[in-house]
Amino acid sequence: MTGRRDMLAGAALIALALAMIWGARGFPSIRAMAYGPDLFPNIIAGGLILAALGIFLEAYRGAAPGTDDEGPDRRGALSFIGIVVLVAGFAIFLPILGFHVAAALTLLMSTRIFGGSWILGAILAVSGSIVLHYVFYSFLRVVLPWGLLAPVAW
C-alpha cells in the first residue's frame, strides 16, 4: 500500500511542477535582464520534478522505506509543523524585522529543528543571511527590507 501511495504522491508532485512551469510561461519578460520572473518558479519546479521522480522510482522499485504498520513519526511531524510555522513567521515578520534579522532567525531555528547545535545554527544564520543578501542585492538587484537594521542600511 505504501508503494502505491508514494507512486501517486510522486505523480501528483510531477503534475504540480508541470503546472508551475506552465503558469510561469505567462509571466512578462523583462528586456533589461537576461532572465525573467519565470526563472525561480522554473528552478523550483525542476527540483520538485527531480524529487518527485526519486519518490516515484523508489516506490516503483519497492525500495520505499517504512510500512503502514509503523505508525506516524512524531519527530518528523513536529519538524514539518515547525518549518511551516517558520516560513509563515518569516513572511509575517519580514517587513518588521527586515530580511537580515528574519533570515538569520529562520536559519537558526531551522538548524535547531533538524537537530543542529546552537553554534552551528548561529554560524549558518550569520553567514547565510549575509550570503543571501549579497546574492539578492548584488546579482539579482532585489531590494530587501532592512527593518530593524534600517539605520545601518547601505
Rank of each mutant, 00 (worst) to 15 (best):
T2L: 15
T2F: 07
T2H: 13
G3W: 13
D6M: 09
M7T: 08
G10W: 03
A12Q: 01
A12R: 07
L13V: 05
L13G: 10
L13R: 03
I14D: 00
L18F: 06
A19Q: 10
A19I: 14
A19W: 08
M20F: 13
M20E: 08
G23V: 03
A24I: 03
R25C: 10
F27K: 07
F27T: 10
F27D: 13
F27H: 12
F27S: 10
P28M: 02
I30L: 14
I30R: 10
R31C: 10
R31Q: 15
A32P: 04
A32Q: 14
A34N: 11
A34E: 05
A34Y: 05
Y35P: 00
Y35W: 01
P37W: 12
D38E: 11
L39T: 03
F40V: 08
P41E: 11
P41Q: 05
I44M: 12
A45Q: 05
L50C: 10
A51Q: 14
L53E: 04
G54T: 03
G54V: 01
F56R: 04
F56Q: 06
F56P: 10
F56H: 07
L57V: 12
E58M: 15
E58I: 09
E58L: 15
A59R: 03
A59N: 11
R61L: 07
A63H: 15
A63I: 06
A64M: 11
P65E: 01
D68I: 14
E70F: 14
G71C: 08
G71K: 09
P72G: 14
D73W: 08
R74P: 04
G76K: 09
G76N: 09
A77H: 10
F80L: 15
I81L: 15
V84F: 08
L86F: 09
V87N: 10
V87C: 15
A91E: 03
A91F: 05
A91R: 01
L94G: 01
P95S: 07
I96V: 13
G98V: 12
H100C: 08
V101I: 14
V101P: 04
V101K: 14
V101Q: 13
A102F: 01
A103M: 14
A103K: 03
A104T: 02
A104D: 03
A104P: 04
T106K: 03
S110R: 04
T111S: 13
R112T: 15
I113A: 05
G115H: 06
S117L: 02
W118I: 08
I119W: 13
L120Y: 04
L120V: 08
G121E: 04
G121N: 07
G121Q: 11
A122L: 13
A122P: 00
I123V: 14
L124A: 13
L124I: 09
A125P: 05
V126G: 05
G128R: 04
S129K: 05
S129G: 06
I130Q: 00
I130N: 02
L132S: 14
L132Y: 03
Y134R: 10
V135T: 06
F136D: 02
S138F: 13
R141N: 11
V142T: 09
V143R: 13
L144Y: 02
P145W: 01
P145R: 01
A150V: 09
P151M: 02
P151Y: 12
A153V: 02
A153F: 01
A153M: 03
W154H: 06
W154M: 10
